[in-house]
Each structure stands twice: as structure tokens, then as C-alpha cells.
Design a protein around this nucleic acid. Structure first.
Lengths: 356, 356
DNA sequence: TTAAATTGTGTGTGCGCACACGCAAGAAAA
DNA sequence: TTTTCTTGCGTGTGCGCACACACAATTTAA
């Protein structure tokens, strides 16, 4: 009954040829104003919706998305977004979407920079990357602006006119949420030990934002009796030192009641204090890494906030497909849910991370 | 570089015509065994993947999905899956997917039955419905089996050979999760008041499962000091009665510390006890209805478990598209995440419910 | 032995759209 | 005035595949 309207129908109804209709649709000019108006009016009247299937088939264009990510399998967290992107690519490859993957050393701004250039040289149609190094990322974005390269950021947002869309969590709010969860197990008073297990913590805006969120929540909840102690640890791979450090802190500050690890490395802390004969210290961390999940299941970690790392990557590719194929406008910011993961609901999120 | 392989390439490489290749792909017969083997071998060698875009365009088939749902805008919860389905239909309509919507009275098995027949008579290609009425649903599934109508269930699962896929939550585990969340605010002892605000509670397997999950969790956590009091309320729209009932229960059982409303109607309880001068009673409910969200924000509800109602509908349609268009096999059970929603992370889930 | 059915293969058309090209008529340049 | 551009339109081809049809070479039935 409701047979779909085609450009042929439009053409017949408007008394012109399909070529003319086509020119109107794509605004290619070479159409008199009267005819153009007529065609547009008919399109309105018949409620024309182009057949995107036919359109992409005829368009027959390949879209190459440049992907600049930390070296695969060098850090368990950073594998997730890349895997998400690959999954997304699989599901939209028949639209002609392909990925140009370029990897850099997670701890080397120089390497980031040089790989960025290599990627740009291949002239992709769009770019996706996490702005891990602020200065180098801004330079890259400037470069993209010159080349009019649409860019999507994942994991961390940065203010730059060239950024078409940011996909990731709201770091500040995730700190707030951490405060909420930790305060439920603190019974009104005590100290939160906030651990930044990262290098260049000072440059990492999202870590700062989490701290801010935490502090604001606790302050608003209970001005005096809830406090935060922050400790940055760059050398997080040295478990011995981590253990010693924690021991010292716990002795020095007897009122430490909970620990907040601000990134995906909560499992490192658990590993470090395995044989610490301390009563259980409630622990909140991030992300569904295998190690984190293991410690969640056996009760060594109490909460994980899921940053949906793999879904971030998935969405980035999906969104670019929407943008190029379906001409959809993308929102400047897409905040993903802050999933509260406990032992009792972890399995479903894990499935989603892997399946989508 | 990696130009896609087409049936033309296969044909040339195998020394046959495209028609023959086509016959091999679709197993339409009329091909000698030798030629068939040759073609298959070439397809393997060239790693042929059919262009689904071209395929669906040429196939030019419409897929009509029958949707049997409770009357739109009669219950805030049941609008969600339908809205999800409509959103999904929008995003796959260019594959020729359309919905045949048929609505029934949420509280009338007869109406369910008659509308089911009306829908079946229109000969849809597939069917989606929530088996709210067990007996009538089984009959409907028998009917579907005769007509070889693939069927997807949402919201509640039912054992029947004709069910291709169930999309929804794991009710038992959601009860377990409720137990976990409530026990964190109970300090080791006390009673959970479990409220079934529904008609025909006895028939509703998912409500039973939630209770079971809750009881098992509490028993395993603390044999003696945590208990459950269950109360079924069919007349949940009478706020006065609800208030009286709750008053009585609280007087009778002084150790009631938390309340667990097993479906989306937690807001009714809050409305009923608005002016009850009782200290705050921690409350856990389900689903992101506007009223629930409001009470969550102002602290009258402590936790909501999101059953992803709208996403259930969305997935149902998406999955059927995958099944018909992309020939994907569907898993028998797709459990959606049990999202823990608190005031601090509600906004993201709400966005997703509306966006998707 | 001849007619009819079956098997194996190739050719052609269309799905709806994008885009290149052709061609007329008028406008601008020579 | 003749020559070149420009504007305004129509026609044709192809994207990759699905499917109907044509037709020869068999095989089976009459």
C-alpha cells in the first residue's frame, strides 16, 4: 500500500526528468528557479524520502577513517576502544567504511606526533583519536582544521573548533558518582584516599575533573567530616613501592576509610596489597578489565564505574558512518552512561563490551 | 587497494556466468556438482562477501513485523518498548521494514487474544510481544508455530519451541541485585518490605523470580538477621488504601528498614505516603519513568534498576532486521544490563532511553 | 521414434539513485 | 555577424545483486 516515493515519481508529478530532480536534491545548480520550486513543492507534497540503500550503492564511495590509538595490546584499557571500532567497522563495511589504524606509544608525545603525521599523510576522510597529550593534540587539531578533516575525540574532551564530536564520559560527574557510592559505605565520616595511578597526572584533565567531582560531592554532603587525601603515583608498576606507600599512608591517616582509584588500574593496587593484613578497605575503580572483574567477583573491589571504553570506539565509527552516509548532524558532546558495576550485575556489561 | 570482490569477479575467475554464481550462492540448484564446487572454491579463495547494500536493493522486499503491545499511553512503562520499536523502525525503514501495530488492554486477556488474531490475520513476517498473559500467550505461540511465524518475546520469557529470541532482563538476578543494594543501607539486620503493585501477581513469573533472587541473596548474606515481608497490592491506584496499608505494616513490623517495589510503580508508593511523617525509608524500584526520576532526584527513591524497556523494543526490531536482511542467527536469550540508577547518573540513561 | 520434461547455463532487466554527457537556446564575447 | 560560453534540461550508464527468461543438451515418458 504505502509504496515508497522515488525520484521518478517526483519527476513525473513535477513534469520534469529525473536528472532535474536529482540536480535539485543535490543542489547542483543548472535548474531554473521556477522548476526548482516546483520540484521542491512536489517533494514536500509526496513526502519524499530518498532511498539510502540505493543512494549509497550508486554513490559507490569509500570512506576511510583514520584512527590514532595507543599501541594495541600494550595497555588493557586502551585495547577496548580499538576493539569497539573494529566491531563497528565490521557492521558498516558494506557502506564502504574502512579504518586506517595508526598506533603510538602510550607514554611518548613524540611518537604520538609522528604517527599522527603519518596518518594524516594518507589523507583519511575523518579522524578519531583520544587527546592523551594535550599540547600535541591541539597541534594535530590545528592541522586537521587546515585540511578540513572532521574529527571525533574519544575518552577525553578538549576545546577546539575543529572537534566535531566528543564521545566519552563526563569526568566531573563520574567523580560525583564515585563520591556518592563511597559515601554510602563511610557512615558519615572519614577520609577518601584518591589515587592517580598514571604518568603526567598534571596534564590529565579528566583525572582532575574526577577529583573535583568527588570533592564537591563530599563537601556538599557533609562539610566537615568527609575529606579527601590525594596521592599521585607515577611508578605504579612497582608493586613493592605501592605497598609501602599505602602502608605509610594508612598509618599516618588512621581515618582513611575508602580508596578511589581514578582510572582503570585499581587491580594494580589490589595486587600490591594482597598480603597486607588490613581489614577490607572499600575500593572503587574504573572499567571492566579482566583483572578488575576478577577482584570485583571475589570482593576485593567493591564498585567499578564502567566508562564504556569499547562502546566509545564503536560509537565513534557508527557516528561517522551516520555523518557521511546518512548526512546526520552529530552532537558536539555525547556523554556515555556511568554504569555502576558490582559483582551482581557485571556479567551483562561484559557481554555488551564484547558483543555490542 | 582492497577493492571489494563481486559476483562478477567470481564468475570470471571460475569461468562461468554471473547467473551460475548467483544460483550457487542461493542454492537454487540447476548447477552441476563440478561447477558448483569450482565456484565455491573460487568464492573461498577470493574471500567473497556479498554486498548487502546491493543485495537488499535488488531483493526489494518489504518485511512486516507484527507488534502486539499494551494500549499506547495507558501505562507509562509500556509506552517505552513501543517507542523503542518505532525508533528502530525509523532507522531500518530503508531496508523495507515496517511495523504492524496492534494494541490490547493491559488488564484483559480476552482483548489480548482477539487483537492477536487480528494481527495474525494480516500475515506479518514476524511477531513481537510481551507474554503478559501466560495461557493466552502460549496459545498464540502455538498458533505462530502452525504459521511458521518467527517470534520474539520482550519483557518476560516463556518456554516454548516457537520462541526465536527473548529480549529482556534476568528477573532472578535483578532480585539478587536489589538485595545487594538494599543490604548496603541496612547495616546487617532488618526486614525488607517487598511490594508487588500489580494485578494477577500470581501469574507473573518475573515478579516471583525477583522475590526469589532477593531472598536468596539475603539468605546467603546473613541467614538470620535479614528477612523479607511480601505484600501484594492489586488495588495500587487507591492511594489512600496504600497509605493505610503501609502504616499498618510499619506499626506491626518495626524492623522494616527498606522497601522493594518489584515493578515500575514505585512512584505510586511515594505518592501515597507523601504526608506520612515517617523517617526516610530507603526505597528501590524499577525503570526511568518521569515520576520515578523525579522522586529519585529529590531523594524519595534511592535506587532504580533500569530494565531498559525502550531498548528492549529497539533491539527486537533491530534483531529481526538482522535476521531477515543479514541472515544472522539470533541468540535464544538476550539479557539486557541491570543498570543501577541513582540521582547522580540518571541523566545519561534517560538520554539513551530517548535517543538510541 | 517423437514428444515432453528436466538439467545446466547464459543473457537481460530492474531495484533507486548519482553522475557524466549531450544538446538546444539564449547570452556574451569576438 | 559569427563564435564562444552559459544556462537549462533530458538521456544514458553503472553501482552489485536477484530473479525471470531463453535456449541448448540431455533424460524421461509416451
Amino acid at each position: 500500500m504505502d509504496k515508497r516515493v522515488t525520484i521518478k515519481d517526483i519527476a513525473k508529478q513535477a513534469g520534469v526528468s529525473v536528472g532535474t530532480v536529482d540536480r535539485v536534491i543535490h543542489d547542483r545548480g543548472r535548474v531554473s528557479v521556477e522548476v526548482k520550486a516546483k520540484v521542491l513543492q512536489v517533494m514536500q507534497a509526496l513526502n519524499f524520502e530518498p532511498n539510502l540503500i540505493a543512494s549509497t550503492l550508486a554513490f559507490n564511495r569509500v570512506i576511510r577513517i583514520g584512527v590514532l590509538m595507543p599501541q594495541f595490546q600494550s595497555d588493557p584499557y586502551w585495547d577496548l576502544p580499538l576493539l569497539g571500532m573494529r566491531r563497528a567497522q565490521q557492521s558498516v563495511k558494506h557502506y564502504g567504511v574502512s579504518l586506517l589504524e595508526q598506533m603510538f606509544d602510550l607514554f611518548s608525545p613524540q611518537d604520538f606526533k609522528s604517527n599522527a603525521l603519518t596518518l594524516i599523510d594518507q589523507k583519511p576522510d575523518a579522524l578519531v583519536f583520544p587527546p592523551i597529550f594535550l599540547k600535541e593534540s591541539m597541534e594535530l587539531l590545528d592541522h586537521c582544521a587546515e585540511m578540513e578533516l572532521p574529527t571525533i575525540l574519544v575518552n577525553t574532551d578538549v576545546e577546539h573548533p575543529q572537534v566535531m564530536s566528543y564521545i566519552g564520559q563526563d569526568s566531573y560527574q563520574s567523580g560525583v558518582l564515585a563520591g556518592k557510592l563511597l559515601s554510602t559505605v563511610m557512615n558519615g565520616s572519614g577520609r577518601v584516599l584518591l589515587l592517580n595511578l598514571d604518568k603526567e597526572t598534571l596534564n590529565a584533565k579528566h583525572l582532575m575533573d574526577k577529583e573535583l567531582g568527588l570533592r564537591h560531592f563530599l563537601a556538599q554532603k557533609n562539610q566537615d567530616s568527609l575529606s579527601v587525601l590525594r596521592q599521585d603515583v607515577e611508578d605504579f608498576d612497582d608493586l613493592k613501592r605501592l605497598e609501602t606507600l599505602l602502608n605509610e599512608l594508612l598509618q599516618q591517616y588512621a581515618d582513611i576509610k575508602t580508596v578511589f582509584v581514578t582510572n582503570s588500574r585499581a587491580y594494580k593496587l589490589v595486587e600490591a596489597i594482597q598480603n597486607l593484613s588490613q581489614a577490607h578497605l572499600p575500593l572503587l575503580g574504573y572499567d571492566l578489565l579482566p583483572n578488575n572483574l576478577h577482584f570485583l567477583q571475589i570482593g576485593k573491589i567493591d564498585f567499578l564505574i564502567n566508562q564504556n571504553a569499547s562502546y566509545q570506539g564503536y560509537l565513534a565509527i557508527k557516528n561517522l558512518t551516520d555523518y557521511f552516509i546518512f548526512k546526520k548532524q552529530l552532537p558536539r558532546v555525547q556523554h556515555l552512561p556511568l554504569d555502576i558495576v558490582v559483582a551482581e550485575n557485571a556479567v551483562y556489561y561484559l557481554q555488551r563490551e564484547q558483543g555490542n
